[in-house]
Design a protein around this nucleic acid. Sequence first.
RNA 1: GCCCUGGUAGUGUAGCGGCCUAUCAUGAAGCCCUGUCGAGGCUUCGACUCGGAUUCGAAUUCCGACCAGGGCGCCA
Length: 596
Amino acid sequence: MMRTHTCGDLRSSDIGSEVCLQGWVRFSRDHGGVAFIDLADRYGMTQVVFDPEDVSADVAESLSNVMSTFSRESVVMVRGTVRKRIEGTEDSRNPTGEVEVLIREAELLNKSAIPPMEVGDQKEGVLPGEDVRMKYRYIDLRRTEMIRAMEFRSRFMHLARQYLESRRFLEIETPILGRSTPEGARDFIVPSRIHPGTFYALTQSPQLYKQMLMVAGMDRYYQVARCFRDEDSRKDRQPEFTQLDMEMSFVDMKDIQDTIEGLVAFVWKGLYGEELETPFMRIPYPVAMERYGSDKPDLRYGLELHTLTDVVREAPYKIFQNVISSGGIITGINIKKDIAGDRIGRNEVDRYIEYVKKIGMGGLTWMRAKDGTLESNIVKYFTPEIIAAIKEEMGAEDGDLLFLLAGPRKATLEGAGTLRRKLADDLGLVPDGVHQFMWLVDCPMFEVDPVSGKKDAFHHPFVLPDENYEGGACFDLVLDGNELGSGSLRIHRPEVQREVFRMLGMSEEKMEADFGFFLEALSLGAPPHGGIALGIDRFVAILLGKDTIRDTIAFPKNKMGQSLLDGSPAKVDDDKLEELQIMSVAIDDLDFEDME
RNA sequence: GCCCUGGUAGUGUAGCGGCCUAUCAUGAAGCCCUGUCGAGGCUUCGACUCGGAUUCGAAUUCCGACCAGGGCGCCA
């Protein structure tokens, strides 16, 4: 027999009706006569009551017997009458709290063993460790917090689809089994049985497929695409993750950005019922680095960086002079008095000095603005003019604390950016529940690795370069200091694509072998096109205020790429390997006696 | 590959050289209880991740392994 209602449905208007509920026994309270069960499902919780005075003695006894088998988290069915709760016993915290179901019939559908973790949300104390939650994820997912996360994510995706469908985008699935390519992250490799010795790669992104869809004239494509990268996890990185992937033909960058702004605003309205302010702020990459020390700045708080290289250029302070003469920079952060600049004591400053050393900086120079001038052990190297210029540049007023970093340009800006985030965290400057979108624009085409000297694509090698092959037609969507995704116009002419490959150091042979099919596609009527991909796990996690994307994924992997739930990855039977003509040389698998 | 943090009953914790036959809560088992809602009361059960070392004595200190998390590298 099917249920007539969920456990979140019943209201005063249902009083008097006969209902059948099915769900999980969350809490039960037996008073030695009258007994209550909180019956729960993902919709809510309904109090069902067994009252021996309301049923005949026979029924009471058999009901009592059945109900004695209703252990915690067992799945049960109850049938009975909805009635108003006794005056004064309503539970205003629960939407179903006006009513209760008087049990007339009950059945144990499936007894639960003793649960390894508790499900009730109101329970005091912290959650079990994540390993327990992952191993028993199906129980963890019964918690309201996880149910809400799944609902939110589902709603988010539904709204996104709704918007894109209304804008004539086609949802098209692209292969997950693809070709391993030399660029980018490490591939997950899948052996081919039919062609022993050859391998598929799980696609890292639908990039090439979606571009070929544009060549095919599909014009507007999107996909909720699962992507796979065999790299180490972080709290915001999983080996498999989901992107909202899009591509459009005959567009410029603004068209793509407009589309995303429209999409995000539509989703926002649907989720929160509020208008989202568009367009988003646009900050050029060099400005973001200079001002925030990051290519994904969090704009929800100040603590902006101030470049002081020119201001202190003439000061006879050896550390600065060495840095400047070797092409480095000086940058500073002003911790204003009103955000605790004057409450950070000497010991705390020392801790920040230790901190910046830990993140690879040489050290931290600091000064206090006091009595109209600056105080510290290094101001003696500064003329009054230089002091005035520093104060001017940093907007320093009495009570402010100034932190200065010096060193090679990029590392120092990034270090200052890291320090900025640390300060914002420590000083509680990051507002709760406030979100700030931003476009990072004017990115370079290539980036040279300072260690290896190797040239790498800043985004990826399919970005349309400018005529000098220096800038790229690419941009990032940033939310609260997190990169949500990268978009770009793509190269649609094969000769340009070849040139970029060449600049990345790819041989003609490799180019033909790995990308020959793609270059050919570009030569057969590829329209100008571009697109973007948004990381859905991250997007949802940020909006829900979660620390980790694992809390927005039903069955995530742990830090070591394992599923604690099903034990993957796991060994496979030898005959399966044999069929694939694969032999493991993992230490554990080698039989050393045989090898002698 | 590297660095950091942590591993105590089913779960969450306290203890951090002898007061440990290890705290508290929750849970589980049993009993009592007719209006609770994280019900309540009483009784009982249940743990120091593993292996070495130091010590008269180790949950506690040290070393290693394993496990979990955070970070660096990596993630075009």
